[in-house]
């Protein structure tokens, strides 16, 4: 893929490009691009951001054990959806990010979105869901230290990520339905989705409250026992 000699610059670009530059472009596009291409361009941007991150992943050293644990956590969060009344994807994504690192968090979030959509139905919204859940995991990994120290902060992050997830997906809803992005229409979409936003945020909070202690202890135990 890209050949940049300096390790530091490569690493910086690898994080900045998909997560800072591209989202910024998506948000700034209505200023520069004609309205009718906005949907197309934002869709391509999201797919490109995902591809960039995933292709960068190949070069990094994650270790066999950590890699397997990512696949285990992904499968667990998908299977959690099959149990009655449990929707743990966000909670498990955040917890894996806290204990296994930011890349693991991104992968668990993004892969859970694709895998669970095999059951719930794939569509043009799949890349947006992947990016939304992936980013929730990534940022949880970046802020792992303060989040692990303060339980209150963690709950706040859960609430916030529920709202952010809904808002990110509403960008897609707006763009796709109206073929353009104006604040007025975005506000309308947000208002329509408000019950769902609240539902997401509250259920995230609830599952973080239930899961943080037991699953955190389990992941910690595995980390200590096998020296990850």
């Amino acid at each position: 893929m890209l050949v940049i000699r300096s390790e530091k610059i490569r690493h910086m670009l690898g994080t900045a490009l998909p997560f800072a530059i591209m989202p910024a472009l998506v948000l700034l596009l209505p200023v520069g691009v004609q309205a009718q291409y906005y949907a197309l361009v934002s869709f391509l941007m999201v797919v490109l951001a995902l591809l960039l991150f995933l292709s960068g992943f190949e070069r990094r050293e994650l270790g066999t054990r950590r890699m397997i644990l990512v696949s285990v956590m992904t499968a667990l969060s998908v299977i959690g959806r099959l149990l009655p009344l449990i929707k743990p994807i966000t909670a498990l994504t955040i917890l894996s990010a806290l204990y296994l690192g930011r890349e693991a968090g991104f992968l668990v979030g993004a892969l859970s979105a694709v895998l669970s959509n095999f059951i719930m139905g794939q569509g043009p919204w799949t890349p947006f869901q992947m990016l939304a859940w992936g980013l929730i995991g990534l940022f949880a990994g970046i802020f792992a230290k303060p989040l692990m120290k303060s339980r209150l902060l963690l709950y706040g992050y859960g609430l916030l990520s529920g709202a952010a997830y809904s808002m990110l997906l509403d960008i897609w809803t707006t763009v796709w339905t109206y073929k353009e992005f104006t604040l007025h229409e975005y506000a309308a979409a947000l208002a329509t989705a408000l019950p769902y936003t609240i539902l997401y945020a509250v259920s995230n909070l609830l599952f973080l409250m239930i899961f943080t202690k037991p699953i955190g202890d389990k992941l910690m135990r595995i980390k200590k026992k096998y020296g990850l």
């Binding site: 292709s55 992943f57 190949e58 890699m67 992904t74 667990l76 299977i79 694709v114």
Partner: peptide
């Protein structure tokens, strides 16, 4: 085509789904 490592994680996750259901 994208990443063999990622493909491995993905395929293991798919396999884990059925495995975990049986275990459940």
């Amino acid at each position: 085509f994208l990443s063999p490592k990622l493909a491995l994680i993905f395929s293991m996750a798919v396999r884990n789904l059925t495995l975990f259901r049986q275990q459940m």
